[in-house]
Design a protein around this nucleic acid. Sequence first.
DNA 1: ATGGTTGATCCTCAA
Length: 269
Amino acid sequence: MRIATWNVNSIRSRIERVVAWLERTDVDVLAIQETKTREDQFPFFRFEELGYEVAHHGYNQWNGVAIASRVGLADVRAGFDGAPIWGEADGPEARHLAATCGGIRINSLYVPNGRHLLDPHMDYKIEWLRRLRDETADWLTAGPTMLMGDWNIAPRDEDVWSMEFYEDKSHVSPRERAAFQAILDAGYVDVVRPLLPGPKVYTYWDYQQLRFQKGRGMRIDFLLASPDVASRVTAAMIDREERKGKGASDHAPVVVEVAMDASVEVTSE
DNA sequence: ATGGTTGATCCTCAA
């Protein structure tokens, strides 16, 4: 079973690339972030005609998460208990969607961007991660689980092109790294890093300043898995080709191959 | 060429 995560930076502007990518990569489950669209504008049919079921959670032009699967899409749930609310909003932002696909509880996550070290968004980000950690610790006991998406954190110095550049910026601060580490400490395993060690292994390159062309990226998109799933991961790939050319997202898809659990019955196709 | 973004929406914000 092939499982991937991809911050597409607008599903409506990226749909042709996403469709072409699904057709050539043979991915079974794709967790999507930054759909940047309302529910009624989401291109559901483009996934369905390829044989994928798809669930989406999004309110407006910000955030938005989705899961596409051709190995079942059951028990879809948007948002986690205790997710903090930004500002005066009625409810939490659209940053989490879960569904059970091929026997694995898939969580598509778009972690808030802290913007700057002293920005209120940073406190929001840390609190969001703390509450996520509290919930995810419980999910581990429920069965095979994966947490995947755009974490907006570079956990190690080697995960950014220049620590000198980032030392006073978001993504690398001790608070953010501790919040990420707390999720690992809860029992989740980064299933990509062991197969694709750094340095200079990135998943995101800013559109500005020709960062991709200069090899100046960040590793901020991660697939974490419960130990039972982690032990079944046989391969990993960051598809840098998708960052090339006109109309690319600023993030590349990250893909893992997970050996099928013979005890699991796939519920569709 | 000594620089250099993109997307959704609105007349700017977010990343």
